[in-house]
Amino acid sequence: MTPRVRMIGLAVLLLVLIALPFIKLTIPGLFGGSLDAPGTLNLLGLCFVFGALALTYDLVFGYVGLLSFGHALYFATGVYVTALALTRWHWSLPAALALTAVVSLVLPLVLGAVCLRMRDIPFAMVTLAFAQAGSILVMQNPFGLTGGEEGVALGGDTLPSFLVGVANTRNVYWVALVLLLVVYAIAWRAVNSPPGRVWQAIRENERRVGVLGLNPYLYKLGAFVLSAFLASATGVVYLLLQGGANPEVTTSGFTLALLVMVVLGGIGTLWGAVLGGIVYEYLDFRLVALANTPSVQSLPGVLKVPLTQPLFLLGVLFIVLVLFVPGGLGGLLRRRSAG
């Protein structure tokens, strides 16, 4: 594919995605309803959010080589701080977003400064521990704020009316699409900037970067904060799509899912991570639907149990990819187009 053909293809894809809420077309098997149905738009919106989130994770993991197991914490910060400001303190949406922005800069700055004193696997464990602390905090429901396992539901009157209700799903869908594009643009700009090149140098050989007179710690902290901030932004859109905050997004299992997305798509490529996030979310959703079909439900238990567990299928897929296709889906596609 020449660059020009690729550009035209991307432009057409983008136009189709923008116009999607007006297309009354049913693709059997791919989605539960027609393309303009709220259910389909909501699923696609979630796919975009997870594409963007996987991208922010790829920034630290794929480009700087930081294996963080605490990325869920920053996504959850976006979800929960916004939800609390809107519902518990009855702030307006702009005020809530401003607060979220401040928290999602300060929190990763402080925690990143501590965690980055470690490297490699110890770093991974420390980030995991902090994320776990966040999860415990949300689960314990301090002062009745976070709602514990119940989570926080956004009421109908907490948001501007164009973002509320089934009829307005298309607006939230467009917000999610814009989010994905903006996050992609920022990430692309970041990794192609001079600091972005230092990040990749750190991934390859951190000591050498230090010898060249640069301070790897500051560059790593910068990448960590940028990635966490963008992850919080995706959390805000997730909140809009879901109409509430659920504690599942704070758990370590959620971070592991992110890891699966990035590896699924291909570590260290921007569009690979986006693809991985979209495919993962789509599979996770559609496999649940598949599990409830009569043909699967009538299978004997030995086959039925594994097939009705999306995480089992995704986990096995993940192991196979790591063992046999280290480049992920992105690597497969690239190899195909090159050869």
Partner: peptide
């Protein structure tokens, strides 16, 4: 990563 995948798959 492999141990992560194994943990997810087995526990589910």
């Amino acid at each position: 990563l492999v141990t992560v995948g194994l943990a997810l798959a087995t526990i589910s």
